Simulated assay, not measured.
Amino acid sequence: MPARNLTALLLPPCLLLASAAACGSSSSAGSEPPALTREQAQEVIARYSRDAPRSLASAETDPQLAMDAAALKMRRVTKRRAPSRTFSHTALYVPRMAGYPRWFAADAISGQGKETLRHALLFTQAKAGAPWLLAADPLPTDASLGRVALDPDGYASPVDPGLKGLAITPADLPRAHSALFNGGPKAPGASALGPGPKTDQAYRALVQGEAALKGQGIGLVSRFSPAPGPVFALRTRDRGALVWYAVKQNEAYTTTERGKLAVTGDLVGLAPARSARTRVDTTVLVQYLAAVPPKGRATVTGMYRKAVAAKGS
């Protein structure tokens, strides 16, 4: 898996100067067969570890594919070493479900020492006979998946993204998160998200970054929206949900002085280094993992952020 941007705050990332779809319905224990057996799920993870280094397109799907493909471009330019694709301490969370797409999640560890990363892997299968592909991998800061409820046979229950009766409907999380970054914690819908480094603190860092750039003669307009693709959720022991979702960030950096903008940082490999003259437009994808209780506010526990497109002019 290509190297990650592990910054917890959504600073203006990249250059510088320095609708959600249902993914299975909620079911009671034993009412539906599991998406696959635990042995088959382990084989899917092992196959991913083997195949991803050779071809991301045969091992991943969006948003993971778009993000990791961009990270691969950056690594080729910077000649950075590929991180470990071997997972250990794997715990599987396979939901019971009928029909397709089918999916499952896994809590896993990669790397050693300072390079150790915790993963919230999510694999999907679009239809019968289709390959299982990695669709999401936000990096949780705690043992978030340990909250998932398991039935007596060790299988999980999916939550319909449109399910009511929680602190926020899982399908509404991308919209709420986008509203927070666009308008701050008091924006309509943003109050569903609790405070933390990936929510209100990230918004403040973004505002501070915009102000700092303005002082250097650079304008930044940043707009967030729900990313295309489904939302996935598993039932937790408190009758809440653990939710995987993604947000898209569109940025426009502008200046009247040539030489102030540069394609650096997270944008390396996405546009020619000298293409930034007076404007750079970027597209960034951000994956999140959030715990949604029955009442209260959602807590965002994991994130993976990567610029996926850039254009200088």
Rank of each mutant, 00 (worst) to 15 (best):
T7P: 00
P13E: 01
C14S: 06
L16D: 00
A20K: 01
A21T: 13
A22Q: 06
S27Y: 07
S31W: 14
E32F: 15
A35W: 10
T37C: 02
Y48K: 06
S49E: 05
A52N: 04
A57M: 10
S58H: 10
A59T: 06
T61Q: 12
D68Q: 13
A71S: 11
L72W: 11
M74W: 01
K79S: 12
A82G: 04
P83L: 00
R85A: 02
S88T: 12
H89V: 06
P95C: 14
Q112S: 12
G113I: 05
E115K: 10
A120P: 11
Q125E: 15
G129Q: 09
L133Y: 14
L134T: 08
A136K: 09
P138K: 04
L139Q: 08
K164T: 15
G165S: 07
I168D: 08
T169R: 03
D172F: 03
P174L: 00
A176I: 00
A187W: 14
P188M: 02
L193S: 07
L193F: 14
G194V: 15
D200E: 05
A202C: 08
L213H: 06
G229R: 02
A233M: 05
A241T: 05
A241Q: 01
V243N: 01
N250M: 10
R258F: 07
R279P: 02
V284C: 07
L285F: 13
V286F: 14
A290G: 12
P293I: 15
A307Q: 05
